[in-house]
Design a protein around this nucleic acid. Structure first.
Lengths: 300, 300
DNA sequence: ATCCTGCCACAACGATTCCTTGTGCCCTCC
DNA sequence: GGAGGGCACAAGGAATCGTTGTGGCAGGAT
């Protein structure tokens, strides 16, 4: 049976007024409606709750039980809804998304728009960072709920990782470089070219992936000067210190006239991924994943 | 707004299964129905409770509040109904009605039938007694909830007294008595006739009323031997010890061939009353009064 | 790549519930 | 004895609740 709080309110009003008719007036209902509600409540509980008199009503012992505990129930329900409204209105759970500026940022507006369509009340809070360690730190320290980043990052049981899409890697070369006249490159072409990029604080597997070290033929990569940010790397390349191997989408951010970008056709692609801490309770994370997939995958 | 427990059950099931469709199967409903219930619950509470995903649902923070407190609410409601059913089924409140055997008893079957019509589950328990002090004692000691008796009984703030109907008093005389040939009597006729009846343990006002002492002309009544019960009084009258002044309805109980009953036309009538202890909480007392009035007054 | 399955939402229809008006009966009070 | 207030029953319309049917979307199997 399905107990409705309205019935308990009716009983409370009837008990207080000692009369269905008076209670009905107070509840802005007709006497018949209140009579029906009491009857329904009695049917649900399964025992008479009031004694009908021509001068009004009187509660039975069972009616007093329902009255007393019903009032407790009503106030509990009121408190529950109030608290839920508080929690809901507080937007106490903004979704904080970390991304690398000018690297995993170009789809953020579309993702945010998609989220807003599904959950208009959700507050999306972008957290920008410049390096992969910064992003991971933000997740670990709870400053961000999720992060967009490039795989690989090495295995890490603290995170849930959802690969989204694969990108070929491209190589940035200075305009005057002998290889810069080519249409595409292979790993073998880069055998003697120093590679710039971030190394400090990166897991070994990540360095190994981006520098392609060791090379498929077993030789070692030539490590050029360290560039921690994309800007530093580009500066180093433009200054002739070597090449930079980067995700394809980076090309669109840095179509610099003093640089030449060429695809690296035989290198395993890197992957854009969405990641969050395994124990993060934010309920919007699955929604974020879903909407991100929707935004990114058709545009493949 | 009107919160129904069904909605809370739906939320609980949905939260447990992580999916509206699976919850719907378990609840023997369609997915659409459950979806509607969740939507309605969200409208009532006023904030989103679940995040809709293509792979199922996820509770928001507000949803977790409602889930947790809602489950408490559900079990409270279940406990409430269970206890009310217990109390109701226990018939823990039989209505115990005291009456004087062969004096205020003749309408008891009709009263009980009327009560049964209005409250089929009510258990009526007759408590018979033979004297007025016995009846009052039963009320005071809580062995009876209500009593039928003859007024007056003297003022007593411990009781609520509802007069029901008035009866003329009649006089019982032995057949050979000089007055026994009359059609009716006046108080003056009884000036020298000893009166029998109960005196011991009766309030003075009651003795004064039944013995009509003092008489309207200021003279004193002649007190015959004490008869504590109707049987004793009748025996005393039949033996020639005097007359007995009794309620009219007594005549129907004791239409004895060896007695003559005559109406006492100028004596103030006595009244049948329903009475109970002021603090008796039995909810059926007003119903008893109502039904008793209905039974007695038309038959006036 | 394509189909199949599972998830949810929207729409339309029928059954039930809910509240209203209208009525009758009873009791109480004036 | 009439007026007023109490409750129950009955009938009709509105709102609610459930169903079936459909579509979009994502994930997994063929």
């Amino acid at each position: 049976m399905d107990l409705s709080l309205r019935l308990l309110q009716a009983l409370a009003a009837v008990a207080e007024d000692g009369s269905m008719t008076r209670a009905a007036r107070r509840l802005n209902l007709t006497q018949q409606a209140v009579s029906g509600q009491i009857r329904q409540l009695e049917r649900i509980v399964g025992t008479p709750l009031v004694v009908r008199l021509s001068s009004g009503i009187e509660l039975t012992a069972a009616g007093q039980v329902v009255l007393k505990q019903g009032e407790a129930l009503l106030s509990s329900a009121e408190a529950m809804m109030s608290e839920a409204r508080m929690v809901g209105a507080a937007r106490s759970e903004p979704l904080r998304i970390a991304f690398k500026a000018q690297s995993t940022a170009h789809f953020m507006p579309a993702v945010e728009a998609a989220l807003r369509r599904q959950a208009p009340d959700l507050e999306v809070q972008p957290i920008s960072s410049h390096t992969l360690p910064e992003e991971i730190e933000a997740l670990v320290e709870g400053r961000a709920d999720a992060a967009f980043l490039w795989l690989p990052i090495g295995d890490d049981p603290r995170f849930v990782i959802h690969p989204l899409l694969a990108e070929d890697r491209w190589v940035a070369l200075p305009p005057g470089h002998p290889l810069s006249e080519r249409n595409s490159l292979t790993i073998a072409d880069l055998a003697d070219v120093p590679v710039v990029g971030p190394r400090e604080g990166m897991p070994e597997a990540v360095v190994s992936f981006w520098f392609i070290d060791p090379r498929p033929d077993g030789s070692r990569a030539v490590f050029g000067p360290e560039g921690r940010t994309p800007e530093e790397c580009l500066h180093l390349v433009a200054a002739g210190h070597g090449c930079w191997i980067a995700p394809a989408s980076t090309v669109t951010y840095f179509a610099h006239p003093r640089l030449v970008w060429l695809p690296l056709v035989d290198a395993p692609p890197n992957q854009l991924a969405l990641m969050w801490a395994v124990h993060n309770p934010n309920p919007y994370l699955p929604l974020l994943l879903q909407e991100t997939s929707r935004v990114l995958l058709p545009a493949n």
